[in-house]
Computed example of a mutant assay.
Amino acid sequence: MTEPVAAAVESLRLVDHHVHGAARGDLDAEGFAAGLSESPFPAPPGTSQLDSQVGFAVRRWCAPVLGLPPHADAPTYLQRRRELGADEVARRFLAASGIGCFLVETGYRADEILSPAEMARSATTPAHPASAEEVVRLESVAEDVAATAPDASCFAEAFAAALGKRVQGAVGLKSVIAYRHGLDFDPEPPDAGEVRRAAGQWLRDGGRLTDPVLLRHLLWAGVEHGLPLQFHVGFGDTDLTMHRCDPSKMTGFLRRVQDRGVPIMLLHCYPYHRTAGYLAAVFPHVYFDVGLAVNYSGARSAAVIAESLEVAPFAKVLFSSDAWGPPELHHLGALLWRRAMTALLGEWVESGDWSQADALRVAELIGAGNARRVYRLEER
């Protein structure tokens, strides 16, 4: 009874609705290990960042893609990567992922990773073409504007013009206000005077954008474009304060924008993925994924995915790898998602709780259909 479920999940051309580019150049041992951790600090003496769920998953599931046996040791694995070279490694993993469309957020260290067009070329096979679309990070646009040294009184206008240019051809916007301030921000849009004063202070002080008034201004400027608006939630590096990344803290903003027709996309969400599922269940414009957590939970990823499917309507859950850097993460995110969905849906069909037809439909919705609908990919 479960074989059709397994075959259908395996054959899905996934839409990765939140992802970054694969590493552009060769990675040494240190760079590769760093790419598999959200921590900027080295592992304890005598150990490696590969001594983790994600590290073990890479050695188990990614080694065969490079022509190595499962569980190849780290030195052998790294030597094989060097022999093949960055371009071939990226091509193998992106093609093996079975991802048919990447929605690439380009605002983080873009010079070190493949562009959306390069991602699509690397993932294309003779049997299956791949595509890629851009998601624009609001804070990066603002920092580009600041680099032109505008007068504070002109900042809002300059940002609006720059964002208007960047969204042409883009399918979505993203905010990292969770990193720069927290999700416990004032849900009301700031007035022009507040924006002018905050811009003056930021332009004098320099540095990256962390002012909560300006961060709110970016959000509301983004809302005006009507595109899906992504938010980093939960799991991340030491730059964020975890308890301020609980998505329930932005409930006021969710209420405030509910009638604006803007889909709110909650990304990653672990360990708040159950909270995100609740928000997706009660608000018509809220969607979520567990992207980053799938790779980092490795052999436990099926448990995380199962928890994400407890209360959320299945039309509100999306697939994401949130991979950045090592292309193993693009492949692994898809592979672990497929394994988890096959096991979970198969179990529910086998027990009689779900029909086979419902299982097949839900797999397609989460793997691709929801993203195509929300980001209007069929219109492109």
Rank of each mutant, 00 (worst) to 15 (best):
R196V: 11
Y77N: 02
A8Y: 12
W220E: 11
D144C: 11
F231E: 06
S122T: 12
T210C: 15
E83W: 10
G193H: 09
A149C: 14
D73P: 13
N295A: 13
D259E: 14
G226P: 07
R121Q: 13
W202V: 03
L173W: 08
A161C: 12
P187W: 08
H232Q: 14
E3W: 14
A312C: 07
S248Q: 13
T106D: 08
L209P: 08
A198E: 05
A170I: 04
I305D: 04
A299W: 08
G226S: 10
D28Q: 10
G234A: 10
A343C: 04
L292C: 09
F283K: 06
L229Y: 09
R204C: 14
A95L: 06
Y272S: 06
H20R: 06
L50G: 06
S248F: 10
V89A: 03
A43D: 08
R91K: 14
D51E: 14
A7C: 09
L94W: 02
D144I: 00
F288W: 02
F159I: 07
L27P: 06
A192F: 06
P116E: 02
Y179F: 15
C269L: 06
A158P: 00
A147W: 10
Y270P: 00
G346Q: 01
D26C: 11
I264Y: 07
S11F: 02
L218C: 12
D26Q: 15
A357D: 15
A7I: 05
E83I: 07
Q258S: 14
K165C: 13
F155N: 00
A117D: 15
L219S: 09
S351M: 05
G164N: 12
E10K: 09
P326K: 08
H128N: 12
A120W: 01
P326V: 05
E379Y: 04
V311P: 10
S11H: 14
E105P: 01
G107H: 03
E88K: 09
L173I: 14
V233A: 09
L103F: 01
G21L: 09
T76G: 11
K174D: 04
I305V: 12
W324N: 01
R260P: 00
V317E: 00
A86R: 13
A160H: 13
L203V: 10
M341N: 01
L12V: 04
A199D: 04
P263N: 05
A33P: 11
H128A: 15
R372N: 03
Y77H: 10
D322L: 01
Q168K: 14
I99A: 09
E379A: 14
V223N: 11
A276W: 05
S122G: 03
L84F: 09
V89S: 07
G346M: 05
G67V: 07
T2V: 15
E105V: 03
L103G: 05
L345S: 00
F93S: 01
T47C: 05
R339Q: 00
L266K: 02
H285K: 09
F32K: 04
G107F: 06
P228M: 08
E88C: 12
R137W: 11
F283P: 07
Q53S: 12
A281R: 13
A72G: 05
A363L: 07
R197T: 13
A357F: 09
V362K: 05
H20F: 11
P313E: 06
L103M: 12
M341L: 13
L267I: 14
A74K: 04
P64F: 11
S321T: 15
G182V: 12
M250Y: 03
A123D: 00
P228V: 10
A276Q: 02
A57E: 00
